[in-house]
């Protein structure tokens, strides 16, 4: 059985936000709504100051808190490991945002155009599938997966920091990378068992 997962190589990521833009372009999300982003963090003290870039998206946890906490059944864990979202069930409890340890769920308060002069033609098309007052998040580009394609962020990353594949297949590139590079999940102590692994 396929179990989709992702590896993110932090040595390769240069914080260019190409994945962020690819995600926004593919999904056509309204202003202020991001399914993924590259979080920046400074640490250390002068003169030994460092800046690290950590691409973040839904971790598609094996034990997802959003699935358990949502009262409306908006989130569901698919057999292939993807935590799917059905915004048409959302009534706006927002508890998903409270319980997600990875800040992966966005809430569309209202849909507004990017420009000051109203909606551009592509925006009218993009925003048709969104409803204000509902929760949305990354679904690993399920529609692209069904066509045999990688998620948009993986396809776009210029430094090939993102890899996507079957975690159950020991010969997949992601499984090999996790084994060889010692893939780590974010905040494993929370017990959510993410399927996005970071390579350091």
């Amino acid at each position: 059985m396929t179990k989709w997962g992702m590896t993110i190589d932090l040595r390769r990521c240069m914080g260019c936000q190409s994945c962020t833009m690819a995600c926004k372009t593919k999904n056509g999300t309204p202003p202020g709504i991001f399914y993924r982003r590259v979080v920046e963090k400074e640490f250390g003290t002068f003169p030994n100051v460092h800046r690290t870039y950590v691409p973040m998206n839904c971790m598609h946890c094996d034990d997802p808190p959003c699935v358990a906490a949502c009262p409306a059944g908006v989130f569901s864990k698919r057999p292939d490991g993807i935590v799917d979202v059905d915004s048409s069930k959302c009534y706006g409890a927002r508890v998903c945002r409270i319980v997600c340890p990875y800040d992966a769920i966005a809430f569309i308060d209202e849909i507004v155009p990017y420009g000051e002069k109203g909606y551009l033609p592509p925006e009218k098309y993009w925003y048709e599938k969104f409803e204000s007052g509902t929760a949305v998040k990354c679904d690993f580009c399920i529609d692209r997966l069904e066509e045999g394609l990688d998620p948009a962020c993986v396809k776009t990353c210029p430094s090939e920091a993102l890899k996507f594949g079957d975690l159950e297949d020991p010969d997949s590139e992601v499984s090999k990378l996790i084994r060889s590079r010692g893939g780590q999940t974010l905040n494993p102590e929370l017990g959510t068992r993410p399927n996005v692994y970071y390579l350091t």
Binding site: V67, A68, A69, C70, P71, A72, G73, K89, C90, Y91, G92, A93, V95, D109, E131, S132, G133, T134
Partner: peptide, 25 residues
């Protein structure tokens, strides 16, 4: 009044097995 989609508020009862909001409802 606080929910953004009040018409779907009855869905709050749909996940009693796992959700504390559903149990509360």
């Amino acid at each position: 009044l606080g929910s953004s989609r009040p018409g779907r508020a009855l869905r709050a009862l749909s996940q009693v097995g796992s959700s504390w909001i559903s149990r509360g409802s």
